[in-house]
Design a protein around this nucleic acid. Structure first.
Lengths: 181, 181
DNA sequence: CAGGACATGTAACAGGTTACATGATTAT
DNA sequence: ATAATCATGTAACCTGTTACATGTCCTG
């Protein structure tokens, strides 16, 4: 019920093809609402049928044709309607937490190595976010409207990754000192 | 592919019925791996068929009969096998972030109110976690093994909620001062 | 007497994943 | 030559959600 709306937000910012949307989801909005290209194609068709978006076939030389989608008036009002509704709280599905909880039922050292691996991945993601922040929002005090909202979402990503890294460090430290005591 | 393993972890800690598992998921492990009772019943049957768990029918007076499940040897080795595997990074699906990103395309004030509502819900959840921490782990320095791991998972929950609250405050402050400038 | 907890389940549907298919261009 | 990028799609499958069904006991 919300992939449609995530796509409406993204397409309102800029029109694009299914493929382009899938790239955007990989790089930005998908950190908060992940989606594969198959999901996106399926939902785009449904939205097109419902009249929330329209498409234009664009021929390209050397590359396959693409369908560039843009948001219709109906899509805009549907988005406005959805924005005024309450949303469910964020859903987190963290296999690493499940593993840590069961660590003593298997190879504890392997779970610790897995925590270290995740720490490295999240450190990379944090650097990505900080790069975007420096490049796109160098003066956050001056922002308002859409740009401010985009910046604030990014800040959420930065905070979440910082928090995750801090947790990994706490886990790594506690598990290391446990095994040597 | 991991609800099975979350259930194995929970059932190893303590045997129980599908209903009891569903309650546990609501209160603890489900904060990191949510599941409804229907999902749990379906997966329990599959695990029973696969021989990872066994059940005993327990008659109760005044209450319906229940099937108490416990983990078999095969289940234990499956869990150990899974624990040594890499896990995918945590998946976050946050409709509030999508709304904030699109806020300027609708009623910005309504989105702000929604952020305030989520802040309150997460404050409650944080208090729940802190209550468990005080009750079950009053002296965290002394912990090791399974208890240490349970404590560390809870710490992850506390950190995540603290981080979320901090983000909400940042958003609320930025959006309020924007609308008055 | 209404509502909630206890206990398990079926059925239908919506959402998400994985594998495969096609075919051109560009970079290594 | 090989792989990667661009671009769209089908099919099969698994996971997750919502609604409904049943029946007892306990509490307000």
């Amino acid at each position: 019920m919300a992939l449609e709306h995530a796509i409406l937000v993204s397409l309102t910012e800029r029109a694009g093809s299914g493929y382009e949307l899938a790239r955007r989801f990989d790089r930005s909005i998908g950190f908060f609402w992940p989606a594969t290209h198959q999901q996106i194609y399926r939902v785009l068709r449904r939205m097109d049928d419902a009249g929330w978006i329209t498409h234009t076939d664009v021929a390209q030389d050397g590359r396959p044709d693409k369908k560039v989608y843009e948001v219709s008036e109906d899509g805009r009002s549907e988005l406005a309607r959805w924005l005024a509704e309450p949303v469910d709280p964020a859903i987190l599905r963290d296999g690493l937490a499940v593993k840590l909880r069961g660590a003593s039922l298997g190879d504890t050292a392997a779970v610790l190595r897995e925590v270290e691996r995740h720490r490295a991945e999240h450190a990379t993601r944090l650097e990505t976010y900080r790069g975007i922040q420096r490049r796109d929002f160098p003066k956050p005090d001056k922002l308002n409207g859409r740009e401010l909202h985009q910046y604030l979402v990014l800040r959420g990503g930065v905070r979440a990754e910082e928090s995750f890294l801090g947790w990994c460090d706490e886990v790594i430290q506690a598990m290391r000192s446990e095994s040597t005591s």
